[in-house]
């Protein structure tokens, strides 16, 4: 399993359309991809839209990304990238 720490940087936070973008990206990988809020215990499956929405992650929220599976390296990289790029909103 790979882990990494990420931060929501886009001004609107992980809003609905960004969440949908993330879910679509995550669904393309075979690995299990999880997002865990660092400040509380909420864990979300990155392939489920309702789950990602329950994170209610606004700008500045810190998350832990956990990826496990045969394509974990690529998956981790892709998800990190989409967060760093602020979902192409910045």
């Amino acid at each position: 399993m790979l882990e990494s720490k990420i931060k929501v940087v886009n001004p609107l936070g992980l809003h609905a359309r960004a969440a949908a973008q993330l879910v679509r990206l995550a669904s393309g990988f075979k690995s299990r991809i999880k997002l865990r809020r660092i400040d509380n215990a909420v864990i979300a499956d990155a392939k489920s839209i309702l789950s990602v929405l329950t994170l209610a992650a606004s700008k500045g929220t810190r998350l832990k990304l956990e990826v496990e599976g045969e394509d974990e390296q690529e998956a981790l990289q892709a998800v990190e990238e989409i967060f760093v790029n602020g979902f192409d909103e910045i």
Binding site: H15, A16, L53, A56
Partner: peptide, 13 residues
């Protein structure tokens, strides 16, 4: 409806 609720939470923090 759900997304409006969600935006209020995410945007309001």
């Amino acid at each position: 409806k759900l997304i409006a609720k969600h935006s209020a939470i995410v945007g309001g923090q």
